[in-house]
Amino acid sequence: MTEDSGRHGRGRPNEGPKAAARNRAALVAAAREVFAERGLEVPLSAIAKRAGVGQAVLYRHFSDRTAAVAAVLEENVRQIEQAAEDERATFAGMLGVLTWHLTDSAAFIGLLHAERAGSRSGIRSQTLGLSERVERALRQHLPPEHRLSAGDDLTLAIAMVSAAVTSPTREERELRALAAWRLLDVEVGPVRAFDG
């Protein structure tokens, strides 16, 4: 055996922080996909497998299911906040970004129903804070005369739409979300991820 096994294909050179960041990003993306397909109670091994890493790598980044869910939620909320900071953002456009997250992430739907999260989930207080951040981002672009500007109307509308997003495929979830917004007589911009 040679000293430099990386040159002979027997090992990979240690890439340190670059590999750690890449692995974390792959794990968060895999968690989002697996949670959307199979629900939040999916075995963590399914996330590691989807990300193409071993379980030890998964546990280096996420000590348990709660940490994996929290990472997905944080990314969802961060993207909505980034969309709100875009000077071209409109309320309808923000609802399009929100709807994309609703249809793409089962964990995000759970966030918007944080009041139902029991102590078993271990993330109730965290989800309440994240939910408030989503609402703050949306309110930055909510015109004062909009039908959802009074009281808790925005919060209730988001909860109603997220409750309607209960379908096994992403396409069906998007159709249901758009139908719910339409029934509420609320204009929604293109359903898309915010890409900066």
Rank of each mutant, 00 (worst) to 15 (best):
R22I: 00
M160P: 03
L148H: 09
R7G: 02
A179K: 07
P144V: 13
I158V: 15
L102Q: 06
W100T: 00
L111K: 06
V191N: 04
V53W: 01
S105G: 04
Y59G: 04
A71G: 08
E41H: 15
P17R: 09
L98F: 14
G96M: 14
D64H: 09
E187H: 08
L130V: 01
V28S: 00
A67D: 08
R24Y: 12
L73E: 06
I158T: 02
G6F: 11
A106N: 05
N23T: 06
D185S: 11
D152C: 03
I47R: 04
E135H: 10
W100Q: 13
S167N: 15
A25Q: 13
R38C: 05
A46F: 10
G151N: 11
D153K: 12
E75Q: 15
A163Q: 15
A107C: 06
E187L: 04
W100L: 05
F108L: 06
G39C: 07
V186K: 12
G52E: 02
A30H: 09
L102E: 11
R7C: 01
Q79Y: 03
H61K: 05
S45P: 02
R60S: 11
A51E: 00
L73T: 00
F91E: 02
L175D: 09
A137T: 08
H146W: 03
E75K: 15
F108V: 04
G122Y: 10
T2D: 02
